Amino acid sequence: MIDPRFAAVADLLDRFVEEDPAYAGQLCVYLDGAPVLDLAVGQDHAPQAGGFGADDEPPALRREALTGVFSCSKGAGAVVMGLLVQDGVLDLDARVAEYWPEYAAAGKEATTVRQALSHQAGALGVPGGFSLAEYNESERAAAQLAAAPPAWRPGITHAYHGLTIGVLMEELVRRTTGESLQQVYEDRVRSPYGIDFYLGLPEAEEFRYRNVLKPAAAPLPFIDPFGYTGLAFNSTGVFEREDGTAGELLDLPNHRAVRAGGHSSAGGVANARGLARLYAVTSTGVVDDAGSRTEPLFSAETTRLMTEDQVFGADRASGELTAFGIGFMKPAPQNSFGSVWAYGHNGANGSFGWADPAYGLAFGYVPLRGEDNGNLSRNGILGAAVRQARLAATVPRA
């Protein structure tokens, strides 16, 4: 569906297909709780196992199709953390060790929840990395992380905890609720609001899953396995493919075990509709079948606590200028996805979900083939076009 006010954004998607016949992507945008764009374009011309089946090759990337969304999963995890803050179960200024006593080791005794959930904890990983099984059963990874020294004195700098922030979130949820983060997300967020974004894809939904494909042109960038970024992305560990060969980060959601486990750093499975709806549910509420809009899942105070900037500056690992709230990315110069009130998270394959509650927007984009992130990427170009269309739309705000 295309709201005429956002037709120029739909034209951009068509242009992507004209420029690259192998392109396939999904885009969904909500405005004030109602969808104004919900599109899927392009085809996948590469034969692959799984997905919709050999008799449907080459399949169109339907709006209902699901694929891996990598670190967009952190946004879903952050929603759960926000609910625990809203409930009074989790205090951002408490020490992590108050909930998780084993964490008070090797220089991490004073680390706060706020630091841990805004990439300031220095808990990037452990020597030798983690196995895929340890990420899928993250209490095992959490025990190792609790015993390990931080990469810096917590709170003095920040660097993207690419995979371990999910371990931190999941262990805090276990320690405060007795349940898994995935179960809380399912019971309180995904299922009640019909969100097509899973942290733990049920077997019954497997027929909708499409394998993430590698970028068509450039190889993945080299990461020094011994450096800060290497530690954050488990480069000294081995993610095995299902055939036993060494895998890469973009392989992760193509493992059924990863999709089923739904690790909140990188194991989520969604479509663009699911990403946009998650952010609409938290920020504006969504319009139901009767035409009424639900209350936002986050209160105004929770939104402030979770989405105000905690850190901004050069990432200790990459050197890039980045900004984070509690679990959520915030706009930064190379990734300027909205106003100062915007929050969201992108993924390693170029997927992105965000909300800008000041302007009533919620955005979801998912490509089938791996892409870049940033202002000049497809998700950046589309996001800018959405904001321009919103600026031009003369819609009274409720």
Rank of each mutant, 00 (worst) to 15 (best):
A317C: 08
S265E: 04
G82L: 05
S180I: 02
P333Y: 09
G247N: 08
S73Q: 01
T164S: 11
L66F: 11
L275I: 12
S71F: 11
K74F: 00
Q183H: 08
G162D: 12
P367F: 07
R62V: 12
S118V: 02
S191E: 14
G237K: 02
Y209F: 15
Q144H: 11
R208T: 10
S339F: 06
A54Y: 08
G237I: 03
V17P: 02
E134L: 11
N136L: 06
A7Q: 10
L124M: 11
P192C: 02
V286M: 08
A217G: 12
Y30N: 10
V96S: 00
P58M: 03
V258W: 04
D315P: 01
A104R: 07
V340Q: 11
A218R: 15
L391Q: 14
E248F: 10
L297T: 05
T112M: 08
A276Q: 02
F222K: 13
A290Y: 09
A116F: 03
I195G: 06
A232L: 10
V79K: 07
A317P: 06
F312C: 11
D187G: 10
A24F: 12
H119Q: 08
A398Q: 14
G350N: 04
Q144E: 08
A204N: 10
P215K: 12
D91K: 01
E203G: 12
A40L: 00
N373W: 04
S265A: 15
Q26P: 02
P333G: 08
K214Y: 15
A146T: 11
V17A: 02
P225Y: 05
Q115K: 01
L13A: 08
S118G: 05
L181I: 04
G262K: 03
W152S: 10
C72G: 14
K330L: 10
Q115M: 06
G364Q: 01
L231V: 12
V79D: 00
V126F: 00
D372R: 12
A272G: 04
Q182T: 13
S118T: 02
I165S: 03
D315M: 01
R316N: 12
L83V: 05
F222T: 13
L297E: 03
S191P: 06
A123Y: 03
A216G: 13
A392T: 09
G247K: 07
N271F: 07
G338P: 09
A141T: 13
A104G: 10
E186C: 00
F207I: 11
I223N: 01
V69D: 08
A76M: 07
I381H: 09
D196Q: 09
K330E: 01
A389G: 11
A7W: 05
